[in-house]
Design a protein around this nucleic acid. Structure first.
Lengths: 188, 188, 188, 188
DNA sequence: AATGAATGAGGCTTCATTCAT
DNA sequence: AATGAATGAAGCCTCATTCAT
């Protein structure tokens, strides 16, 4: 039996074609494949963090800041399918070395999330017992899963419009708190 | 031609060596690399779902069921680093066609999550307004991000022991609900 | 105007084809292109030096040793056109790093030449004023030029049969010494 | 696409930069890379042969003519490192077709060497039995090896100053002729 | 059933050459 | 005449897959 049909993700060729240039042209602007992906992510995350800082500054509460950041993230990726493909699909197809570098690039974004959580705790809006790292992973994991699902679905719906509901569930969790807790309070 | 050095494959060779068989032997049991990874995932998720069903059946509330499932997931992946590498790293390095297939495999797991959410809502433990799909993405996204972080960290800590805190934040969200809402209730 | 017709020296492909194997097969035995060429030269020169040592040991005078070594060199390369092509053509097409390595590989051969010259001087057969390095370069340069000319000619004649005449001119130089010097002696 | 880094060619770009012009400009004056190298060699060898003819004409004996030509060759290449790099390194990195052309270019130089040898024989200075072709290869091979060694050494010494010793060994060969032959004469 | 040497398609990258400015 | 960004053919190398043993 012959080989099924070869490879399916000619990366550089695909990226070049997506950019409307020849393969070699890519190397006028980037050192190598790693540089392409890392540069692209750095710039993307950098821009989102940058814009995020501004928008966040104009918000009072941690709640509004989170809403603002999630909304921005979904808007940015939701308006650029190719970019989303790169961050959600291509960037995952890289070796361990690059993943470490990706971790570094994401740090400012993670920090922004941590700051929001911390502020929320300080202003007594978020639970004081919350584990920052776990909270951050919930926030980012939920955003990431949402964007990936959107990308793999073929972008059949509007990503940005999900922000409100996503933030809602992140803030409230699954519990039907008020009644639940009031009941418990009542029992106490 | 005279031999001088060996040779090293990255993926199939590694998988074969891990299984203690020769490269070619793998193809007696699997159609191709995609089949290996997909079969592995199918079996893994299948087992977790299977075990999950039993454990879940022995739990009363949606809350306990969720706790049980997250705990199981972390325990299974946390005790098998190679498996976690496959699900969190190698399985992401595949093309869109396979990702669709992966989606199918994950469906029972997603369904289990959906069932739990639905039950929670029915027993008035979870908020009636919750968007099932978004809730499921929050749960799975958080679990996935947690496991990935653990894999990339080099498994420097015990994954299973995070289950409690993760479930806690999924259920309660970020809000400091009791005081927060009691205040609000008081204001009303 | 389009590119003239592409490249003309597909090296690895050519080497692989010459060896009757596929391109990838080469990499089962060699680390990379440099390793192929360097290994080949190392083995070739190594064998010649090895054989040379034996043959040289069975010769009394420096003159006979030189004759023996040149003869061996021409016989070895003259009987293997592909090998000669590699040493005289392909091995020159490499970057500075490899050339340094080539220098190291050739050292035993150069040393053998130096030893012969030194012995010749000691047994008062060769001129005491001879500069070893220059003598060695004359010997090797002449051999090299002879082999290269043979390779580029398309091996239209027998290389080995030139050894006698080449050694003769190396030993005697261009001068018609006896008459020349006898005249000079006479004049003195 | 946003620029970020420059780009570096190895050969044509290097040549162009060395000439102080842009890459494309080179193609206004030369047909292609082969044409550049061949033209450069043609001009270089042409000049050396030209100058050589003059200098040679002012010399009486074949011996002085050889000395003059070797000296000129070493002076020309020894005073222009880039040129020597081209003749000793870059020009060897070309395919068989070009090497034939290079052979044609070198012909006048080889002829000049042949003429000197022939004259030497005629004036009974050089041995009548000398094989012209082999003698020429010895002369050129020794010169070439000397220049190459100088180039690869990083030009750590003065090439021109080696001419005297090189010619000396070419003329006298390795034998300690006078004593050697006088002995032999005496024995006769 | 098992092996592993051999294969070759296709990935990344370089660089001689072109062409719009 | 000159430029240099863009091109794309072809180089090196990897690795999923095959097949003779």
């Amino acid at each position: 039996m012959m080989a099924e049909s070869g490879y399916h993700h000619a990366q550089i060729s695909r990226i070049a074609r997506a950019a409307g240039v020849a393969d070699g042209t890519v190397y006028l602007y980037f050192k190598n494949k790693e540089d392409i992906l890392v540069s692209l992510l750095r710039q993307t995350i950098g821009q989102i963090v940058e814009k995020g800082r501004e928008q966040v500054r104009s918000q009072e509460t941690a709640e509004d800041k989170l809403r603002s950041l999630v909304s921005l993230y979904f808007r940015e990726l939701g308006s650029d399918w190719k970019l989303a493909m790169v961050t959600q699909v291509h960037l995952r197809q890289v070796d361990a070395n690059i993943r470490r570098e990706i971790g570094n690039i994401m740090k400012p974004f993670y920090n922004a999330l941590d700051d929001i959580v911390q502020q929320g705790v300080e202003e007594k809006l978020f639970r004081p017992s919350v584990n920052y790292r776990i909270a951050r992973r919930m926030i980012f994991g939920t955003m990431d899963e949402t964007v990936t699902a959107w990308v793999l679905s073929g972008q059949k719906y509007d990503l940005a419009s999900l922000a409100e509901d996503v933030v809602d569930v992140l803030l409230h969790g699954l519990y039907d708190y008020p009644s639940h807790d009031l009941e418990r309070s009542a029992q106490a």
